[in-house]
């Protein structure tokens, strides 16, 4: 993500330090993660200590400070999904991809994240791959579902 783009986002919020979270959210949406270089630009432009920007980037759940792979897998850990077997599902995803939540595989193919609740509790357990919902998943279906992604 280039600095001009980050500059445009910051300008949208009139460079106000109080908009730090909104600015980081916009960068996260655009770039899918927050590289250190982006945090440095934000820190400079908002005149905030870099440490404070890093603190914010690691405090809130929406941000990732590690690179994201080509495909994002979100396993819903909402309560309804939990009672319907989300843990088994997560373990199977970990097994197939070889990564744990918060990680990206070495080929940068998949990133895995658990989310608190996708709000589709009637369809649980639910996983989301690149924003597409897979409802009522069973561990046996994981391998096939992930095969489709390159």
């Amino acid at each position: 993500m280039d600095n001009d783009k980050i500059g445009q986002i910051i300008d949208k919020y009139q460079g106000e330090a109080s908009s730090l979270i909104q600015i980081l959210l916009d960068i996260q949406h655009e770039n899918h993660w927050l590289p250190r270089s982006a945090l440095e630009v934000v820190s400079k432009k908002l005149n905030l200590p870099l440490s404070k920007v890093q603190q914010t980037a690691t405090f809130y759940k929406a941000f990732s400070v590690v690179p994201i792979g080509r495909h994002e897998i979100h396993v819903c850990k909402g309560t309804a999904c939990h009672v319907n077997g989300a843990q088994d599902l997560l373990e199977e995803v970990e097994e197939v991809t070889g990564i744990k939540p918060g990680e990206t595989d070495p080929d940068a193919k998949f990133s895995l994240k658990t989310v608190n609740c996708l709000g589709r509790c009637g369809l649980g357990p639910v996983i989301e791959i690149d924003g597409k919902t897979h409802a009522r998943m069973s561990p046996a279906e994981i391998s096939d579902a992930l095969k489709k992604y390159e």
Binding site: P49, L50, S51, K52, Q54, Q55, T58, F59
Partner: peptide, 19 residues
Amino acid sequence: KKNAVVFVKSGVRREISFN
């Protein structure tokens, strides 16, 4: 007024970190 050391992360993972 230096903010050289801050808390990062949240919950049980909260820890101090030097920039």
